[in-house]
C-alpha cells in the first residue's frame, strides 16, 4: 500500500515528474518535493484557503486534491503568478492597501483574487466580498484585503 505512483504534471509551465504515495496531497508535493513553499498549509481540510492554487486555470484547494489526481494537469502556484520582475497587479494591490500583516494566508489570497478577477473583470464590492469569503485571514480584519481586491480589479480592467 506504500507503493509510490509516478505522476506527471506541469507546474508553473514546467514539466515535472514526481513519485508519490497515493495519499500525498498536492499541497505537500508542491512544497516538499518541488520546493514551491509559497503554497501554505493551515487547516488541511479545505476551509482556510491558504493552499489555493490554480489547476488547469481554476482555483482549487491543493489540500483537497491528491497529487495522483493531478496527473496530466497544469498547476499554477503563487510563484507562477509572480512576474520575473516586480509584482503582479494583485500582489501590488495587496502591498499598497495593507492587505497582509503576517502574510501566511497571502499566497492563497493572491491566487484566489487573481483567478476571480481573471473571470470577473468588473466586480461589485459585494461580489468581491463573496469572492474572497473562501480565504481566512487572522490578522488584517479583511478590509485591507477587500481594498486590495478593489484596486486590483479597477487597475486590471483599466489596463485591459
Amino acid at each position: 500500500m506504500n507503493d509510490r505512483t509516478r505522476v506527471q504534471l506541469t507546474v508553473n509551465g514546467q514539466r515535472e515528474q514526481v513519485e508519490v504515495e497515493p495519499r500525498a496531497l498536492l499541497a505537500d508535493v508542491l512544497r516538499d518535493q518541488l520546493g514551491l513553499t509559497g503554497t501554505h498549509l493551515a487547516c488541511e481540510h479545505g476551509v482556510c484557503g491558504a493552499c489555493t492554487v490554480l489547476i488547469d486555470g481554476e482555483a482549487a484547494r491543493s489540500c483537497l486534491v491528491f497529487a495522483v489526481q493531478a496527473e496530466g494537469a497544469s498547476v499554477t502556484t503563487v510563484e507562477g503568478l509572480t512576474p520575473p520582475d516586480g509584482l503582479s497587479p494583485v500582489q501590488e494591490a495587496m502591498r499598497d492597501c495593507h492587505g497582509l500583516q503576517c502574510g501566511f494566508c497571502t499566497p492563497g489570497i493572491v491566487v484566489s483574487m487573481t483567478a476571480y478577477l481573471d473571470t470577473h473583470p468588473n466586480p461589485t464590492d459585494a461580489e468581491l466580498r463573496d469572492a474572497m469569503s473562501g480565504n481566512l485571514c487572522r490578522c488584517t480584519g479583511y478590509q485591507g484585503i477587500l481594498a486590495a481586491a478593489r484596486q486590483a480589479a479597477d487597475r486590471m480592467s483599466a489596463s485591459s
Binding site: I55, A59, A60, R61, A115, G134
Partner: peptide, 9 residues
C-alpha cells in the same frame, strides 16, 4: 455550494 475554489473540483 462552498466557495468557487471548491466548486472547481
Amino acid at each position: 455550494i462552498g466557495h468557487f475554489q471548491i466548486r472547481s473540483r
